[in-house]
């Protein structure tokens, strides 16, 4: 993953960058599988490696296929990246170890869901039970977000063109 990330930074050909970021996403999906988060890995592989790559290629076809070399010095961005990275790593020190049974995420509602799912919902996949039933409002919100995002893209990219064409038609008839 580190190698692909470095390659993405160094590359100038944007086509190769898109392909490499697809590989990066696939690798992180593998990481999720290793950590037993199969549902997350599934989403990562389908959305990140699949759809995003296609959409990036679509964008590339609309814009240019090569990155312009920048003249500015990379020192300030590098500094910001290092400080942010250090802060993030410092933050992970307080986090409980992976799979720690006393972690806050395991002790509050998590245990409750695990205890209640077999009798209340009776589904083998607990992720689905939590996602669709206990957290039904959240998922409804997520769908609304996806919906809004889709509408936004449609308005920005396809709607304007259509209206302009209609205007031209009106002018032509008048």
């Amino acid at each position: 993953m580190v190698l692909t990330a470095l390659a993405v930074v160094r590359m100038r050909s944007l086509f190769a960058v898109v392909m490499l970021s697809g590989i990066f996403t696939l690798l992180s999906a593998l990481l999720f599988v290793t950590m037993d988060a199969v549902d997350v890995a599934f989403t990562e592989a389908a959305v990140g490696a699949g759809i995003t790559t296609v959409l990036m290629l679509g964008t590339l076809a609309l814009t240019s296929r090569h990155e312009r070399p920048t003249a500015r010095s990379p020192l300030i961005p590098l500094f910001v990246v290092f400080v942010t990275g250090a802060a993030l790593i410092y933050g992970t020190m307080d986090m409980p170890n992976f799979g720690d049974p006393t972690a806050p995420a395991q002790t509050h509602v998590g245990a409750d869901y695990i205890a209640r799912t077999p009798e209340e919902i009776d589904l083998p996949n607990m992720v689905t039970a939590v996602l669709a039933s206990y957290r039904g409002y959240d998922t409804l919100g997520e769908v609304a977000v996806v919906f809004t995002a889709g509408i936004g893209v449609l308005l920005l990219i396809s709607g304007l063109r259509r209206r302009r064409r209609k205007d031209e038609d009106n002018e032509g008839s008048a």
Binding site: I51, L55, G58, L62, F147, A149, G150, L154, S158
Partner: peptide, 15 residues
Amino acid sequence: GVMVAIYYAFAARTP
């Protein structure tokens, strides 16, 4: 729907 719609929106503009 959203994924296909976004793809259509991009692809319809692509030369």
